[in-house]
Each structure stands twice: as C-alpha cells, then as structure tokens.
C-alpha cells in the first residue's frame, strides 16, 4: 500500500512504521516515544470525535492527532 499513514488506521489495525516525515519539534518527540522506523504499532482507541487516535507503541499508549500522525508512514500488517 502506498502512502499509508498512521492517521488512516482504524481501531484494531496494526502497522509497521517505514518512514517518519514529520518535521519540527514533534519529530524528536516521536522518536523519544519510540516511534522510529521499523517499529510495530497498533491503533487501540479513537476519541469520540474520531481525532485524536491512540496507538500502542513499545508497550505504552500514545494519543496523536490525525494531522500529526499523518507524517508517520508505514505498511499495514
């Protein structure tokens, strides 16, 4: 799948991160939270309004807004 990003994930989906295009301060923050290339993530919750979504990454659950997670590209598993 081309151009698949974390914001496209639905609750229960799994994905493997391939590229992080996010720029600025958020980029480093994502790295520190464990979002790096080659990481498996699972979308575990969506907020009542559909945004933000929460991802299980390296044992912890992190909520990201769709516009922020759209910079994290990957393949659906």
């Amino acid at each position: 799948m081309k151009n698949f990003s974390l914001c496209d994930m639905k609750k229960g989906d799994m994905a493997l991160i391939e590229k992080i295009k996010t720029k600025g301060a958020l980029r480093q923050r994502l790295f520190d939270l464990g979002f790096v290339e080659g990481t498996k993530v699972k979308c575990v919750k969506t907020s009542p309004f559909g945004d933000p979504k929460a991802f299980l990454v390296r044992g912890s659950v992190i909520a990201l807004r769709n516009e922020d997670s759209s910079g994290i590209l990957g393949v659906k598993l």
């Binding site: 996010t22 301060a25 923050r29 939270l33 919750k45 992190i62 909520a63 990201l64 807004r65 922020d68």
Partner: peptide, 10 residues
C-alpha cells in the same frame, strides 16, 4: 495549534 502527544497510562 501546536502538535500534541498524550500518553494514556494504563
């Protein structure tokens, strides 16, 4: 709005 990351602890 700036970017936003929020941990949902168990």
């Amino acid at each position: 709005p700036a970017s936003f990351t929020l941990e949902l602890p168990p």
